[in-house]
Amino acid sequence: MAEAAEIETLSFEAALAELEQIVGKLESGQAPLEDSIRLYARGAELKAHCEKRLEAARLQVEKIVKGASGGLGVEPAEFS
């Protein structure tokens, strides 16, 4: 689990760059089977981390609004 904890400390950009390197290695077909399995597992963890970071960013740029009918909704944050 040390690797999973280490992944949590990566920025989105660092995780994405590592994921791209892993994809390149796997697509080349040059890695031995055991290395490919290890790389695939690491890539899956990096992908999940990137998705989590993107979702957190999405939530930061949305805001909750109260509609005319009293119901709550979400709309994009305004940047001015």
Rank of each mutant, 00 (worst) to 15 (best):
Q30S: 12
E27I: 02
L26E: 05
E51Q: 12
V65M: 06
E34D: 12
E8Q: 15
P76I: 03
V23F: 05
S80V: 06
R38K: 13
G67M: 09
A44R: 13
E27L: 13
A56L: 09
A56K: 10
D35Y: 00
A48R: 15
E20S: 14
E20Q: 15
L54C: 11
S28K: 09
A31T: 14
A48G: 09
E18R: 15
E18C: 05
A57Y: 01
E78F: 02
E51T: 10
K47H: 12
G24A: 06
P76G: 11
R53Q: 12
L54T: 14
R42F: 01
P32R: 06
H49S: 04
C50F: 05
S28E: 11
R58V: 08
L59W: 04
K25P: 00
A31C: 12
E75G: 09
S36L: 00
T9D: 13
L33W: 00
L59R: 15
S11C: 02
A14S: 13
S11N: 02
E20T: 15
L46D: 04
A77N: 09
G70W: 05
L72G: 05
L59K: 15
A2Q: 12
G24D: 05
L72R: 10
H49V: 04
G71I: 03
V74M: 13
G70D: 03
S80C: 07
Q60A: 14
R42C: 05
G43E: 04
Q21M: 11
R42H: 12
A77G: 15
A17H: 10
E20A: 15
F12D: 08
E18D: 11
K66W: 00
E45R: 11
K63G: 07
L54G: 00
E13H: 09
L46Y: 08
L10G: 03
V74C: 11
A17I: 11
E6V: 01
E34P: 01
Y40R: 14
G24R: 07
E78C: 06
L72I: 12
E45W: 04
Q21K: 15
E55F: 07
Q30C: 02
C50L: 09
E20L: 13
V61W: 00
V74K: 15
I64P: 01
A14Y: 06
G71M: 06
I64F: 00
G24Y: 04
E45A: 11
E78N: 09
A48L: 13
S28A: 15
I22S: 04
G43F: 03
A4N: 08
D35W: 00
S69N: 15
A77T: 04
L19T: 03
A4M: 08
E3V: 10
E62G: 01
E27T: 08
I7L: 06
V65W: 02
E55H: 08
V61K: 12
E20M: 14
